[in-house]
Design a protein around this nucleic acid. Sequence first.
DNA 1: CTTGCTCCTATAGTGACTGTAGGATGGACA
DNA 2: TGTCCATCCTACAGTCACTATAGGAGCAAG
Lengths: 149, 149
Amino acid sequence: MPKKNSAPLAIGELSHQTGVKITTIRFYETIRLLPEPPRTTAGRRTYGAVHLRRLNFIRHARDLGFAVDTIRELLALSDAPDQSCAWVDAIARQHLEEVEDKITRLSLLRSELGRMVKACSHGRVGDCRILDTLADHTRCASDHGAVRD
Amino acid sequence: MPKKNSAPLAIGELSHQTGVKITTIRFYETIRLLPEPPRTTAGRRTYGAVHLRRLNFIRHARDLGFAVDTIRELLALSDAPDQSCAWVDAIARQHLEEVEDKITRLSLLRSELGRMVKACSHGRVGDCRILDTLADHTRCASDHGAVRD
DNA sequence: CTTGCTCCTATAGTGACTGTAGGATGGACA
DNA sequence: TGTCCATCCTACAGTCACTATAGGAGCAAG
């Protein structure tokens, strides 16, 4: 006996229940990530359980770092329950790899920054090891790449 | 006997020597990160050793993840060699902290994604553990926050 | 009826670039 | 001299995922 909690929600209510800001909810509507909800006669959006579920999914996926386009894909997949879930698996694995990659790069960065900070003798700017290091990549211990996301 | 390699560089040359794209060099000029260089009569930019040094500094700092505004600050500081380098040190330390923070958050994420992927039994979408997990944060082992930069 | 909250649209701004359109210049070769 | 291609120029739009602001209208309580 699934209790239908189907009283329509105002946007502020939906925002509160999902932790997604009102402006962001409206933004998701404009980029067609969230379907247009029905409106009251006065033009206010009214959301139901479907929207709530979908927005929770979106929010969680975003928190886990999935891109909006990827989420769109995942949502489409989850609407076709009889398909193989191999593609979902592939998407998740690829994202995991990207995260691991980022961690690796950031760790190299941490070492380099750590070394830089440690070398500082707290004197005058003219003798600053930190600025020296920034001025000349060859002083770096590792070939830290760029951290551009 | 410092060899002055002072033949003026064309923008393509500078790009080649620093690894910064031509468009990016021009962009740095518009945001006043790099000073406007002199031009030839035909209006082409000509760079000297000063620009080369400055751009190398910028590039290296960007690679290490410093924001453009921070780099602006660091450049201003490096132009005042008699000041104390405490502020430079503080900037670098803060950036290091931010990087460490990011690593922590990404590591939590990695665990969560790893768990998700491992739980996948490669069946149909309707039974997909990955989609289940995305649909419901309470299935998560940790309170991984958001990864928003 | 006023007060204060929620809601609406439309538009511009964020950071750090990247891409495109449409044109001018420079040097090498026939 | 013609012509070819690489290089350079400007100006503006697009990226991503929002956030902020301006200027209103609606709604419930006191």
